[in-house]
Lab assay of single mutants.
Amino acid sequence: NQASVVANQLIPINTALTLVMMRSEVVTPVGIPAEDIPRLVGMQVNRAVPLGTTLMPDMVKGYA
């Protein structure tokens, strides 16, 4: 099963992502693939992302 990117903490709206904010986990539904974590660093979320939430492509500005 493919691992997805999951929020390791509450990520406030418009926050630029850092490695410490994300972890990989096998979840359903599948979100952004864990191998894209390096690409996500520095990108901003367009909404608040609660701890444990799977990051979906539409949550990250410029990802989709």
Rank of each mutant, 00 (worst) to 15 (best):
V6G: 02
T28A: 08
I13V: 07
T53C: 02
E25S: 06
N14T: 05
V60A: 01
D36L: 10
T53F: 13
M22F: 12
T18F: 09
G62T: 05
A64Y: 02
A64E: 13
V6A: 05
Q9A: 04
G62Y: 09
E35G: 09
M22R: 00
N14D: 13
M22D: 01
L10G: 11
V49K: 01
V49E: 01
Q44L: 07
R47M: 13
M22T: 03
I11H: 00
T15C: 02
T18V: 04
V49L: 12
P29E: 14
G62W: 06
N14W: 04
G42F: 03
G31R: 04
R47H: 08
A7S: 08
Y63G: 12
A7I: 12
G31M: 05
G31W: 02
L19A: 13
V5D: 00
I11Y: 01
T15Y: 06
A7M: 08
L17K: 00
E25M: 03
P33A: 15
E35N: 09
T54E: 02
V30A: 08
D36S: 12
V6Y: 11
N14P: 03
G31K: 03
T54H: 11
V45Q: 01
T54C: 02
T18M: 09
A64T: 15
N46D: 11
A48W: 02
G31Y: 03
L10K: 08
N14V: 04
A64S: 14
R47C: 08
V30M: 06
G52Y: 10
V27A: 10
M59F: 15
P57M: 07
R23K: 14
V5S: 08
T18D: 07
D36I: 15
I32Q: 01
V26A: 11
R23I: 13
G42Y: 05
V20P: 08
R47F: 08
V60W: 01
P38V: 08
I32V: 14
P12A: 10
L19Q: 10
T53G: 11
I32A: 02
T54N: 03
V27S: 05
V6Q: 11
S4T: 11
V45M: 14
G31H: 02
T28V: 11
M43K: 08
S24P: 13
D36Q: 09
V5R: 00
V5F: 01
I13M: 07
G42K: 02
P57C: 13
L10N: 04
V49P: 01
A34R: 03
I37R: 07
G62K: 04
Y63Q: 06
N14A: 05
A34Q: 15
R23Y: 14
P57D: 03
L19Y: 13
M21G: 04
N1P: 15
I37Y: 02
M22S: 01
V41H: 10
N14H: 06
L51Q: 15
D36G: 09
L51D: 11
T53E: 14
N8Y: 14
P29V: 09
A7F: 01
A48P: 07
A48M: 14
D36K: 12
I37T: 10
I11L: 11
T18H: 05
L19S: 11
V6C: 02
L19M: 14
Q2F: 13
P29T: 13
A34T: 10
A48T: 15
L55S: 00
T53V: 08
A64M: 14
N8Q: 12
A7Q: 01
G42E: 03
